[in-house]
């Protein structure tokens, strides 16, 4: 009996191992492990054994069955895997054809630039304020300390709808609106559209974006203005960036400064981007004129502040290498899909 079992086990192992497909494996299973298979037949013979030998033989049969079933399962997995590989090969696709996803669009380069600027100032504790694009003379000029006859108020510079209704030529108008509704400390940035009568060409547009900043508190100094704009330049251009301030004139700041950043393209050596100067002019800035602070009812002895304004278009053009300002307003899908 034992000898027969061993022979059967050996034959069964071979049959299972050699089965080349699932059908053959099933046949081998039926033959050796099936309900009327050989192992079953051997098991039936147990009754012919002496009573004391039966438990030991029974164990042997169980072990053999377990071993063969494990072998069967392993072989079945092998054959199944092989078969699905075969099936997969039959249903292969050309993986080099282009994907058919829906487009996902990026932020408009102008607005992406503005976002990055805003991010820096949010980090410095500024909030974002907005204001009307169509303004009156008071907010547009008068409250900003423009003398009544200033050339900026000319029809040649500013778009008018009526004598006292105009398109704002700078976001500084919102400075006044913010300070009228808020006591210091004030720390706001104002992004927005401005309008100036300018001929439309590669570097000029009658519609443009500005970012205005205003910080008013006790003890704000011109040194703080320099530090803030240095932090801004570094946030936009990296830790290597340097800033340069030089005297300028704006009615609503005193002292006033034009500020520039070291050219990101040549690090100040002089190149085409910076027209050989090593510097890129970013905008105007200065200490808020006491007349402006007094106009909104602030105590000019107690509070000082600084303000600055940056044009966004030229910034964006430099960053992305866009050669013509008109492209920014073109709605050209070929340009917009690049971002």
């Amino acid at each position: 009996m034992e000898h027969r079992l061993r022979e059967m086990a050996e034959a069964a192992r071979r049959a299972l191992r050699e089965a080349t497909n699932l059908d053959e494996l099933e046949q081998a299973r039926a033959r050796y492990l099936g309900r009327s298979g050989i192992l079953r037949d051997i098991q039936q013979g147990i009754r012919d054994l002496a009573k004391e030998l039966r438990p030991q033989f029974g164990r042997l049969i169980n072990e053999t069955r377990a071993e063969l079933e494990a072998l069967l399962e392993a072989r079945r997995k092998e054959l199944e895997a092989g078969q699905s590989r075969l099936r997969a090969a039959e249903s292969a696709i050309d993986v080099t054809l282009p994907g058919r996803a829906q487009h996902i669009a990026g932020r408009h380069p102008l607005l992406a630039t503005l976002d990055d600027m805003l991010e820096i100032f949010l980090g410095l504790g500024y909030t974002i304020a907005e204001g009307p694009e169509v303004e009156n003379n008071y907010y547009g000029f008068e409250a900003l300390n423009y003398p009544p006859d200033h050339p900026a108020m000319d029809e040649q510079m500013t778009f008018y709808i009526a004598d006292d209704v105009l398109l704002r030529s700078q976001t500084s108008t919102v400075q006044i609106r913010v300070m009228e509704t808020q006591e210091p400390p004030v720390r706001v940035v104002v992004p927005g559209r401005c309008f100036r009568r300018d001929t439309l060409d590669a570097t000029h547009s009658h519609t443009f974006y500005q970012l205005e900043g205003l910080c008013v508190d006790e003890g704000i100094t011109m040194a703080d203005l320099k530090g803030t704009l240095l932090a801004f330049a570094r946030g936009m251009f990296g830790e290597e960036a340097r800033v340069r301030f030089r005297p300028d004139f704006f009615p609503f700041t005193e002292p006033s400064a034009e500020f520039a950043v070291s050219c990101f393209a040549c690090s100040g050596e002089g190149c085409r981007v910076c027209k050989g100067t090593g510097w890129i002019e970013l905008g105007g800035s200065g200490m808020v004129d006491p007349n402006v602070l007094a106009g909104v009812g602030y105590d000019t002895e107690r509070y000082t502040g600084f303000a600055f304004g940056v044009g966004v278009e030229r910034f964006a053009m430099n960053r992305y290498g866009i050669p013509d300002m008109r492209l920014l307003y073109s709605g050209d899908m070929r340009m917009l899909r690049q971002f």
Binding site: F121, L122, G123, L124, G125, Y126, T127, I128, P185, V186, R187, C215, D217, G219, I220, T221, M222, A223, D224, K226, G227, T228, L230, A231, R244, F245, R246, P247, A257
Partner: peptide, 20 residues
């Protein structure tokens, strides 16, 4: 000379900058 003025950051007395 503007370049000889010190460069500092204001003390933040107005809190965090958040979008509305």
């Amino acid at each position: 000379g503007y370049s000889n003025l010190p460069t500092t950051l204001p003390e933040n007395t107005s809190g965090a900058g958040v979008r509305t």
